[in-house]
Design a protein around this nucleic acid. Structure first.
Lengths: 226, 226
DNA sequence: GTCTATATGTAGATAGAC
DNA sequence: GTCTATCTACATATAGAC
């Protein structure tokens, strides 16, 4: 055990912070063993799923033996809960930093677009933790999910606020309840984890395409009765 | 082993066939043991995932003992491959029946809308098999996935044809490649499996809402530069 | 902090009676 | 066609030396 709670949030925040490049590097920050375990677990969880990933694999990828893992964590379930937390923290930090990076006074629509780009950015750049989150969330024990739940709920609330602002500003379509829009939107944004291929073009273009799809849909004219 | 290959496709096709209600019921068709095993496996796979579901659970839910399963199937992986097949067959049948139910001469856009509704219908009514498909596809062995692949590819091709027709008719937006639209679309349509709640309203309204979202997007005005 | 060795449980699969 | 009994493998987790 130690205070490894929000490793990724810290790292993401530091990366986005202007002065960070100037600070004297506080030792080349070799990852602690606990961090290496979490990183290895996230990578394997994302590729193989929760049950198919063994502690021995995690340990091997972290450069230690299986028994040593228990010095740092209570067991597999606790590791999973931490990975879930880190995945959401990475997304939250990415969304916040994209939204906060807008010019002051930006409208609700621009903020929503920035949030979409931020979510995609966090998902495809901290891919190990976010992909693991999407992959294992429904497979971990009820206890681990319950433990993680507040973190996830806060992220849901963040989106509900962004969307409520849009609704109040008249940006959002009015014929569909906001919670349903949120579920549709975040779901649609999560799927690219399965098929995004960075070799097919720059991330910015990809994000713009996805934003266009969720904002304006796939057809050219408004929906008629059918 | 026996010819249990396309149980669901057959059943769906029979259900949609006009004269089926008139045929003398060929015995109340009590499910065969093999069918019960597949149904139980699909239900458990969808709820717990592939690795977390044991053969003993499947057997118990099918009303037999674990050892007896091997009389019907080679093992867990074969069961998984069959469940995957059945999930796609259910979707294919649902899409086909919705599209074919349109008035003759319907346009590409109406056909795409019918396909969307069909996919949602198949997913939320043959929920066990389709939810299982979405849940376990990436968790089964390479062998099982390879064995299932042709079925899945055919379904992908079905969507590519529908979307190509739309593109040719000018219905589809032109700034995004059709394969990407397809991946986005089918991904967005799959997500409701996780949160659709039939108690919140009739399926028809739900399908219309999702169709509106994927067709026209979540905002009220066309996307501007941002 | 990490190791080796091991306890304990349970998974998928098989053999052979009925 | 289904059963019971069992094989074999490997999972998580623990104990205690270093």
């Amino acid at each position: 055990m130690k205070g490894a709670d929000d490793l990724l949030a810290d790292r993401a925040a530091a990366a986005g912070e202007p002065g960070s490049a100037l600070r004297p590097a506080p030792a080349p920050t070799p990852d602690t063993t606990a961090e290496q375990i979490l990183a290895a677990a996230a990578r394997l969880f994302g590729r193989q799923g929760f049950r198919a990933t063994t502690l021995r694999q995690i340990a091997e990828n972290a450069g230690i033996k299986a028994g040593s893992v228990y010095y740092h964590f209570d067991g597999k379930e606790e590791i999973a809960a931490r990975v879930l937390d880190a995945g959401i923290h990475a997304l939250t930090a990415a969304v916040r930093s994209h939204v906060d990076g807008l010019p002051a006074g930006s409208g609700a629509r621009a903020r929503l677009a920035a949030a979409v780009e931020g979510h995609l950015w966090g998902m495809l750049h901290h891919g190990d933790f976010t992909a693991a989150h999407i992959r294992i969330y429904r497979n971990v024990s009820d206890a681990a999910r319950a433990r993680h739940q507040p973190v996830r709920s806060a992220y849901t609330r963040l989106w509900d606020e962004l969307l409520s602002d849009c609704a109040a500003a008249g940006v959002l379509r009015r014929d569909i309840p906001v919670p349903m829009v949120r579920q549709f939107l975040v779901g649609a944004l999560n799927w690219p984890v399965d098929w995004y291929d960075p070799r097919r073009g720059p991330f910015e273009r990809f994000a713009a395409q996805i934003t266009a799809l969720v904002f304006d849909g796939i057809v050219t004219e408004p929906e008629l009765a059918h």
